[in-house]
Design a protein around this nucleic acid. Structure first.
Length: 202
DNA sequence: TCGAAGATTGTCT
DNA sequence: GACAATCTTCGAG
């Protein structure tokens, strides 16, 4: 079998040990690999949002909130996952960034499916087209089988890790405001690949 | 112990 | 395009 990009080594710890805004931008084009439940599902990151620190009022770990049981993983080491449940129905996958004891993270908002589309389709109850598989934070978590049990999981080992993928040229990266947040909604901390049909929302 | 709010999605009009 | 579903978390009483 020929070499696949998904056989590459996981991204190093140093990749995540930077400000969330830089990590969010750098995550575009990287590849998420899941072997949860024994099935391999792979997707390329095409959309991400940064939650940059305690001064970010839209963050779950904003200063007015402080450290709680829910956001505890955000205070952990860079490179671990922060998985939370939203609206009582959906899981969302974040990557913890910056440094330990400092709450910053990047929300993975959309993937372009690369492998295991049949498994994704089986996990996702309602799918009209391939674009519906991973075009949203709750959707991609369901498609990859991600649940709260992966909170604080280190993203350099099975069953969920991130490897280097094809780089996205700067001219194809769009920067805009975050989606769905009710505070600090005008901060330009959302990044996505221009023209990619798997982005959650234009 | 209770009540309000939420980094979304799916369905209906 | 608008709105309900659904339940965990957190702050107040």
């Amino acid at each position: 079998m020929t070499h696949r990009s998904t056989d590459a080594l996981p991204l190093p710890h140093s990749f995540y040990a930077r400000g969330a805004e830089r990590v969010a931008r750098a995550l575009l084009g990287q590849v998420v690999v899941s072997t949860i439940g024994g099935a391999r599902t792979v997707g390329r990151i095409v959309e991400a949002e940064a939650y940059v620190g305690p001064h970010d009022d839209a963050s779950h770990a904003a200063e007015r909130v402080g450290r709680t049981m829910r956001n505890d993983a955000m205070f952990g080491s860079p490179g671990i996952a922060y998985v939370y449940r939203i609206y009582g129905a959906h899981w969302c996958l974040n990557v913890v960034t910056d440094r330990a004891e400092y709450p910053a993270a990047v929300l993975i908002r959309a993937l372009e499916p690369l492998e295991g589309q049949d498994v994704m389709r089986a996990r996702r109850s309602v799918v009209r087209s391939e674009r519906d598989l991973c075009s949203g934070p709750g959707k991609l978590a369901q498609a990859l089988g991600i649940t709260g049990s992966l909170n604080a999981h280190s993203l350099d080992t099975a069953p969920l890790w991130i490897v280097e993928g094809p780089r996205v040229p700067a001219r194809r990266v769009v920067t805009c405001t975050r989606v769905g947040v009710t505070r600090a909604h005008d901060w330009p901390l959302r990044f996505y690949e221009r023209g990619n049909p798997h982005v959650s929302r234009w």
